[in-house]
Simulated assay, not measured.
Amino acid sequence: MRVESRKYLSSKNRQKLLNSTNKDIRLYTLRKSWKKNHNDDFVNQGYIDIFTHGETAGSQWANRLTVGDVIMSRSEAKDKHPHLLNGQALLIADETAFPALAGILEYWQNPLSPYIIIISESENEQHYFKNINLLETSQTHRVICPPEDQSTKVLSILENIVGIDVVWAAFESESAKIVRHYLRNNRQIIGKNNHTKAYWNLKSKKNT
């Protein structure tokens, strides 16, 4: 039997292997988990936050679920954001990251309220956050736009925000790249404080 180690693969082949391994794996936000009965050996109940959006793969999977289906988690990782504990924070999320943003706000410990930019294609999708108490009207910006306009809309808002120390953001890949570079080069927010992530790729979506 021939075993090929990731360690000795080229960068290109290692990425191909990872993509193949994770092809049908999706990341979701586990908002709460518990044991159904006190004597159970493991945690077997929970709330998984899935924002269904159009005909995405995640939405199709969620819509096919029925009562009694068993969901197995292959891996679990705590979503820690220690850089957000101090300083003036900026949070940005489009529909794909709404659950993650909600989780961050739910356990907010920074004494300063963050600036928040919420992006969606449809105004109705903004209703997801109607019960989040931390959303201060004066510091929350709601953006309705097609995905290709995300970076332009976000940058126009950032031009009017004076102080930003730390960032967590998750939205479309190309837009995230543009905003991340702006925050680094124009606002001098260093890498460890500038967690601007790509959650999905518009080019890949157009090619499917």
Rank of each mutant, 00 (worst) to 15 (best):
I116C: 15
N124V: 11
Y107L: 03
T52N: 12
A57E: 03
E76L: 15
P99K: 03
Q109V: 04
M72K: 13
K78P: 09
L101Q: 05
E123K: 15
L105D: 11
M72I: 12
Y115E: 07
L91A: 06
F51G: 07
I71H: 07
A89M: 02
A57P: 00
A97T: 08
A97P: 10
E125L: 14
L84W: 01
H83N: 03
L105E: 14
P99Q: 04
H83D: 00
Y115S: 02
G58S: 08
P114A: 07
G103N: 13
G68D: 08
E55P: 01
Y115K: 02
A77T: 15
A97V: 09
A62C: 09
L84D: 01
L105V: 12
L101E: 03
L112G: 00
A100P: 07
G46R: 08
D49I: 05
E121Y: 02
L65T: 03
T56P: 05
G58A: 12
G87Q: 04
E123W: 05
M72E: 14
P111R: 00
Q60D: 09
L91G: 07
L65I: 13
Y107E: 10
E121Q: 14
N124P: 01
G68E: 04
S113K: 07
M72V: 12
G58L: 10
E125Q: 15
R74W: 07
I50C: 12
A97K: 07
T66N: 04
I116L: 14
T66A: 02
Q45D: 09
A62G: 01
I92N: 01
T96S: 15
S120V: 00
F98Y: 15
S59T: 10
V67A: 12
G54F: 12
W61T: 07
N110F: 09
N63T: 08
N110L: 07
V70H: 13
L105K: 11
E55G: 01
Q88K: 07
A77P: 02
D79I: 00
S113Y: 02
I118A: 11
S73L: 15
A102E: 09
P99Y: 04
G68Y: 06
E95A: 13
T66E: 08
S122L: 06
